[in-house]
Design a protein around this nucleic acid. Structure first.
Lengths: 156, 156
DNA sequence: GCTTATTAATTAACACGTTAACAATATGGC
DNA sequence: GCCATATTGTTAACGTGTTAATTAATAAGC
């Protein structure tokens, strides 16, 4: 058996995890950025960020929800959500008040101005998504969503 | 549970793009976060971020590259890359100098300390990735990578 | 050769992601 | 009721994402 090689004697390829071009983290990042690239200009025209859009959209779907539930549904970490809520409230798109039953909880609700954003952005967003889905293939989108969900829940 | 009372007379479902739980942007985000959740603690132990790891890994793979090429390969925007390069150079993991042929370009090269990071992190990273791939299924990872790549290049 | 346009990189400004620490409120055991 | 503990949300600090503006250097047009 030959003597052990020190790290500096090894070619770097032997140490690398695998080809950078075929790695899940980067592939997921690239796919996500490509998808969001279709939505971002439209959202920017409405002066709203992707995360702000997720929040008001969930409020329109689900009515009153507290911050924890929102963080879970919108997949936004609590500190980010705190800032987003502050911004949306200052802009009058949502309202916020303490839960009477549990003083720790903050209940969120969409405001009329927020509903107008839903009415403005919703159809445009749907149109972009539908076009994307049509180009990729409806069936394949379903398959991809299933595969992504399975990847996301591997460790449960 | 959500029996949504709608804030206005207009049902929001008519305006919403589609079900939030089955949307590509969020599914991609969740999948990516789940995957990175497996790597992040290890990277944190080595006091390195995901993006910094991508940069030094590409330098180990490709030798000298300029900033534009790095931005392309690591999928990092130029302003972020400027900050990452500054940080990595201050920590002595990479070196940086102007291109003699084109004074605008900045050439990057991995430093010995950076190679030690490669030697330390690389095997651990590979082990995590291999385990992940084994649990998800090698074949399915390949299929997923192909589908993600196609999604990322839809508009080309 | 000189002006103009283009390109590479940086800076600025703002929003979000991430971890850790913290304050306020609820809960459970005694 | 009182205390230790757990939970909810916020703040802090730092790194990254994003767009726009800026600087430095090269390339193109004439």
């Amino acid at each position: 058996m030959s003597r052990a090689k020190t790290p500096t004697e090894l070619g770097p390829d032997a140490l690398l995890p695998h080809n950078t071009r075929r790695s899940l983290p980067i592939a997921l990042l690239r796919a996500r950025e490509a998808v969001m690239g279709h939505f971002r200009p439209m959202l920017a025209r409405h002066e709203i960020t992707e995360q702000q859009w997720r929040v008001i959209r969930i409020l329109a779907e689900s009515g009153k929800v507290d911050a924890s539930e929102m963080a879970d549904k919108a997949f936004i970490l609590a500190p980010s959500l705190t800032r987003i809520i502050r911004s949306l409230e200052e802009r009058g798109l949502i309202t916020k008040h303490k839960d009477a039953d549990d003083g720790r909880r903050v209940l969120l609700e969409i405001a009329p101005a927020g509903m107008r954003v839903i009415a403005d952005v919703g159809p445009e967003s749907r149109a972009i998504y539908d076009q994307l889905e049509a180009r990729y293939g409806h069936e394949r989108v379903e398959v991809l969503l299933d595969m992504l969900d399975e990847l996301a829940t591997l460790g449960d």
